[in-house]
């Protein structure tokens, strides 16, 4: 009795917070997403069950939705490809450099997300050393790095890399190095040992890192805004932004888009957790 009361007291502040700042706004958002514009009064709406907003969201803005998922997926894969060797090295190969690498991974957080992304514009600028050298080597067919899909994905990868490194590091660090020795002792070549022992044991970290990277990346709009072009690289976040702030009467569409994105991500997460589910996590 006392125990359960204590438990309630402990969760109450958190629940209250979520209720006020998450559940209530979500309900509000849901209701906005179904509103219809008030005829004759642009920018005014009335409560309705207008599924048409969702039809618009899914048809008119399908390219942006698809692009968001694609960019986020590519960025997640790239993050994994970069973060795994890094975390692996930190844990097993160069433990003495752990601290330094960790600082390097976390240090960007000390500057604003926005500033860092703007800095990428300089790095990728047409006159910058990177773009010029690539042009000189004829590796840049379009002539530009900025305002390309590659730039957006690069920005996403850069900005979300720490969210992949940290959980991977945490899960690899829990792997007993003796298990890797046992793998080698039991005739596993380094690659086989990695495949059969290290990777499965790091799976919880891969799962966490993938979710922490993919979900915010899919909803991101800063990278596409600052590094992408006006056409062909916009993500769903940019559309929502535009509908909310720049299109008169765009509120219901923006809300419908937000909800659609949420639903898609939720579905993907459920599929992933089912597939690599709890069995591998224990």
């Amino acid at each position: 009795m006392t125990r359960s009361r204590t438990a309630y007291l402990l969760v109450a502040p958190g629940l209250l917070w979520l209720l006020v700042f998450f559940v209530a706004p979500v309900v509000q958002l849901a209701s906005v997403s179904l509103q219809s514009p008030f005829p004759g009064y642009p920018g005014y709406y009335y409560r309705d069950v207008n599924v048409g907003n969702y039809v618009v969201a899914l048809t008119q803005f399908a390219p942006q939705l698809g692009r968001s998922l694609l960019y986020a997926a590519i960025a997640t894969v790239l993050c994994l490809a970069l973060a795994f060797p890094l975390a692996y090295t930190m844990v097993f190969k160069a433990p003495r450099w752990r601290g330094l690498i960790m600082v390097l991974v976390v240090a960007p957080f000390f500057t604003s997300f926005l500033l860092r992304t703007i800095a990428w514009r300089q790095i990728l600028a047409d006159e910058g050393p990177l773009a010029s050298s690539l042009r000189a080597l004829h590796l840049l067919p379009g002539g530009h790095l900025t305002e390309t899909a590659a730039a957006v994905v690069a920005g996403l990868t850069y900005n979300f890399l720490p969210f992949m490194v940290l959980p991977l590091y945490a899960s690899l660090e829990r792997v007993d190095p003796t298990l890797l020795e046992a793998g080698a002792d039991l005739y596993g070549s380094p690659w086989q040992t990695f495949q059969r022992v290290t990777a499965p044991l790091a799976l919880p970290g891969v799962m966490a890192g993938t979710l922490l990277t993919f979900i915010p990346a899919a909803g991101d709009y800063v990278n596409a805004e600052l590094l992408g072009s006006e056409h062909g690289t916009k993500m769903v976040g940019n559309v929502i932004d535009a509908q909310f702030f720049r299109v008169i009467g765009g509120y219901p569409i923006a809300a419908a888009l937000s909800f659609t994105l949420m639903a898609i991500i939720l579905a993907l997460v459920v599929v992933q957790v089912r597939r690599f589910g709890t069995e591998h996590l224990t």
Binding site: D176, D185, V197
Partner: peptide, 27 residues
């Protein structure tokens, strides 16, 4: 290590937690 006709019983046993007992022995 993986090329040697030598096997070890480790002090901590070092059993693979993600495999069944059978999976461990069949490794």
């Amino acid at each position: 290590a993986h090329e040697r006709p030598v096997n070890t019983v480790f002090q901590s046993y070092a059993l693979f937690p993600h495999l069944s007992v059978l999976g461990n022995v069949a490794f």
